[in-house]
């Protein structure tokens, strides 16, 4: 009996002692903070490697980008490493709001002008009102001045146009790892001119990044086209690269089989496979610089 009482007493005393021990910091921890903060930096740039990521530029931010691909000629025997030929795209992107980014660019390869509109619709949120993924909608259009390799001759204005619609769905699984799925619809007017070919095509992109250091990540992308064009043999666009960002500069290095920059072209009409042969191995280098036109 006496022991029981002692135990009771001990438990009671312990109970009071514990309520003492509930210190101030524990009290603060029980108060929720930062309920409405969406997950930051699923990717660090508006491109994973060759294709668009869910990221948009913040309001008032202007991005200047120079995208380059170098590769070797198959006919000439040259001594240079993957630098006989060069294709480039010079572009601007501007954040109208934190959710809307518009962009325009000039491409050297087909003397093309392209423009796009990107809307950051849904954002992943890991705290408070949780939401599992981010969704961004991309609509792009391109006009190519130079005739393509398939259709030589004079094309009407409307036949030189290409359109791409993408749903970019991404999730940041951990601070280091993000994955994106990109269902894509492409309409290339010139393809519709070929007998038996459709101008419209569906594709699915998958891309990811793995952060290997505070400023460095390894990225990869692949685009699958279930019903490709039959006139020429095409291959899924693939890229393996390293992104390095520091301050206002982002450098993206990659090995890829895609030599074009605008979505409609490289997603559905990459005509060489990914390997190390001349003409197939492309070295890509993107330089991106960000300017804050307004301070908060």
């Amino acid at each position: 009996m006496k022991t029981k009482k002692r135990i009771l007493l001990f438990v009671l005393l312990l109970g009071t002692a514990m309520s003492y021990a509930q210190d101030l910091l524990t009290k603060l921890d029980s108060i929720e903070q930062g309920q409405d903060l969406p997950t930051l930096a699923t990717f660090k740039a508006t491109r994973i490697s060759i294709g668009h990521s869910v990221e948009t530029r913040k309001k008032g931010v202007l991005q200047i980008s120079s995208m380059n691909r170098f590769w070797n000629d198959t006919v000439r025997s040259s001594q240079s490493f993957a630098a006989d030929k060069w294709n480039a795209r010079l572009g601007l992107e501007y954040g109208i709001s934190d959710r809307i980014t518009v962009g325009a660019a000039y491409g050297s390869g087909y003397q093309s002008i392209d423009a796009f509109f990107k809307y950051r619709w849904l954002r992943q949120q890991d705290t408070g009102k949780k939401f599992p993924f981010s969704l961004t909608v991309l609509q792009g259009a391109v006009y190519r001045n130079k005739a393509t390799e398939i259709l030589l001759g004079d094309l009407a204005f409307e036949d030189r146009l290409g359109f791409t619609t993408q749903l970019l769905i991404a999730r940041k699984f951990s601070p280091n790892f993000s994955l994106q799925l990109s269902p894509t619809f492409v309409h290339k007017a010139e393809d519709g001119l070929l007998s038996g070919e459709s101008a419209s095509r569906l594709a699915l992109g998958i891309g990811g990044r793995y952060k290997v250091g505070p400023h460095v990540s390894v990225v990869s992308e692949y685009y699958y086209v279930p019903d490709p064009i039959t006139v020429v043999e095409t291959y899924g666009a693939f890229a393996l690269g390293v992104n390095w960002e520091v301050s206002d500069v982002m450098l993206q290095f990659k090995l890829t089989n895609a030599r074009n920059f605008v979505e409609d072209k490289f997603i559905t009409k990459t005509v060489n496979n990914f390997n190390f042969r001349d003409g197939n191995l492309h070295f890509g280098f993107h330089f991106t610089y960000v300017i804050h036109t307004q301070k908060r």
Binding site: D23, L24, L28, Q33, L40, K59, E245, V290, H292, R296
Partner: peptide
Amino acid sequence: EIAVSILMRAFVFEKALMEEH
């Protein structure tokens, strides 16, 4: 006694990209 709890995400920078970095 005093206790302080600072949410790092709530720091606002003049430049959006700086905040992200």
